[in-house]
């Protein structure tokens, strides 16, 4: 399979520090592949995701996403790639508190014409697709629409955030410890639902977690310690 993401000879250091956090010779994700990325706290997992998302640029090396070399693009063009072709889920507080669940889910379509168009190819409206995703993730859209997203449980919030990452069928979903606030029962169900939706659309997944147990469900488990030559995890953890 063709790689959707290819990272090669990448080196990144924060402006405030002299040594590189990341020095990765090669890391790639195939189309539709689900990669589990783990590593100790402070090892640079979130930093790598920021680089893939085009928010940070490496000092050296290349990040190629869906055939495009992100480093050669303007930051606006990278923002567009991120908006059009990626979806993000974070650990907690993923939602804008002033938008309801459906508005939160359809938010990426406001920034990406491509996502909006892809939704409208299959659904009659953005809201319909949001509600479909919610039911696919076993949430009752009617209950959600009456509630403010801040009144939802953490598990419910994470599913709304997942629906937002999935809407418009992005090429890749990037999740940074989305399950760390969930108990194991809910976590397993959450993961299954996420996988189902990714499989439906052939979406690639890069999933970061401390929780090595989860790794067994993925196509591939990658340890950042192994691929990162300038490994500097926090020693006190």
């Amino acid at each position: 399979m063709n790689p959707i993401l290819e990272v090669s000879r990448l080196s990144f250091s924060w402006p405030s520090s002299t040594s590189a956090v990341l020095d990765i010779d090669s890391f790639s994700v195939a189309q539709g592949e689900k990669v589990f990325l783990h590593g100790p706290s402070g090892s640079g997992k979130s930093t790598l995701l920021n680089l893939i998302g085009g928010v940070l640029t490496p000092q050296r090396g290349e990040i190629t996403f869906n055939g495009m070399n992100l480093n050669e693009m303007s930051s606006e063009a990278r923002d567009l790639v991120r908006g059009d072709q990626m979806g993000f889920i974070f650990q907690m507080f993923n939602l804008l508190p002033y938008l309801n669940a459906v508005e939160n889910i359809t938010l990426p379509c406001e920034f990406s014409k491509r996502k909006a168009m892809r939704v409208l190819e299959q659904a009659s409206s953005l809201g319909d697709e949001a509600r479909r995703l919610l039911s696919a993730l076993r949430l009752d859209p009617h209950i959600l629409e009456e509630k403010s997203v801040t009144q939802l449980s953490v598990g419910q919030q994470q599913r709304v955030a997942t629906a937002r990452a999935l809407i418009g069928r992005p090429e890749m979903v990037i999740a940074d410890e989305p399950t760390s606030a969930l108990d194991s029962n809910i976590r397993d169900r959450f993961l299954r639902l996420l996988f189902d939706e990714c499989n439906r659309n052939g979406t690639s997944l890069v999933f970061v977690s401390h929780d090595l147990d989860l790794g067994k469900n993925f196509d591939r488990v990658v340890s950042l310690e192994e691929i990162n030559r300038s490994f500097t995890a926090d020693t006190n953890e």
């Binding site: 923002d79 908006g83 059009d84 990426p108």
Partner: peptide
Amino acid sequence: ILRSVGAKKS
């Protein structure tokens, strides 16, 4: 969050 869904810096 806005940045993650595709908002530009501007």
